[in-house]
């Protein structure tokens, strides 16, 4: 803990991509096939290519924040096997916030990421009433993902800004798709879920404070994920 924090630390400049990607139109991958970019580098280079990019508006964020989001998106897609990953440039419609401090991702994990302890008890009780054993396959829920770099520092105020700009759950029509959901992969699961709950969003999710997944990238491309709740939420009994 530094005794006297500098008033404004310089914004982090994560060097996610080598300098060559500054000219995306003439990406080295196109001109020199031998000089191959990594999958992540190619992904970021492609997202800057107006022809290849599927992102709708030109984002107004600094490139490093944009690249950070892309790197995390790449990680949750191919390492964590998330689907239907979208990037959000604007606050959720249900909030009054003016702007998002940085691009935020949302995605669908392969299985439920977080079960509140009260919900866990409820599920187990239901299981017992139905005469079943074990843990049921709970439907996955869409999660917010906040991309950060380890060399950043964050204040409480900035976390509050992010939470204030997010709804409890990402709306279906918000954000622009980075990795669209594979057709039919998600819908049946969702219908089964909505049979029980009567809504897309479970009552547990609605009754609990907002949550997001804090993803922190280090220079060696390690990404760690921590769930952050907007308020006092008792810990899981894992």
């Amino acid at each position: 803990m530094s005794a006297s924090p500098s008033p404004q630390p310089p914004p982090p400049q994560p060097t996610l991509v080598p300098a060559t990607e500054s000219s995306p139109a003439h990406s080295p991958a196109n001109t020199h096939p031998d000089f191959s970019l990594s999958s992540l580098q190619q992904f970021i280079a492609d997202s800057q290519d107006p022809q290849k990019s599927k992102l709708d508006p030109k984002p107004t964020y600094p490139p490093e924040l944009h690249h950070l989001a892309l790197q995390v998106a790449h990680n949750i897609r191919f390492q964590q096997e998330w689907t239907d990953i979208r990037v959000h440039y604007r606050p959720s419609a249900r909030t009054t916030a003016a702007a998002l401090p940085r691009p935020i991702l949302s995605g669908l994990p392969p299985r439920r990421l977080y079960v509140h302890p009260d919900e866990q008890i409820d599920v187990l009780r239901q299981q017992r009433e139905q005469g079943k054993a074990g843990w049921p396959d709970l439907a996955a829920e869409r999660e917010w993902v906040l991309p950060t770099h380890l060399r950043e520092t964050w204040a409480l105020r900035r976390f509050a800004e992010v939470f204030d700009a997010l709804a409890t759950v990402p709306a279906e029509d918000e954000g622009s798709g980075l990795f669209p959901a594979p057709n039919g992969a998600r819908r049946p699961q969702q219908s089964q879920q909505s049979q029980q709950q009567g809504d897309d969003v479970s009552k547990w999710r609605r009754s609990q404070p907002k949550r997001l997944l804090l993803s922190t990238v280090d220079d060696d491309s390690t990404v760690v994920y921590y769930i952050v709740h907007d308020g006092i939420v008792k810990p899981r009994q894992n």
Partner: peptide, 11 residues
């Protein structure tokens, strides 16, 4: 007072 709880994401 605003509080934030951090738990491991499990991934």
């Amino acid at each position: 007072v605003r509080t934030f709880c951090v738990e491991w994401g499990g991934m």
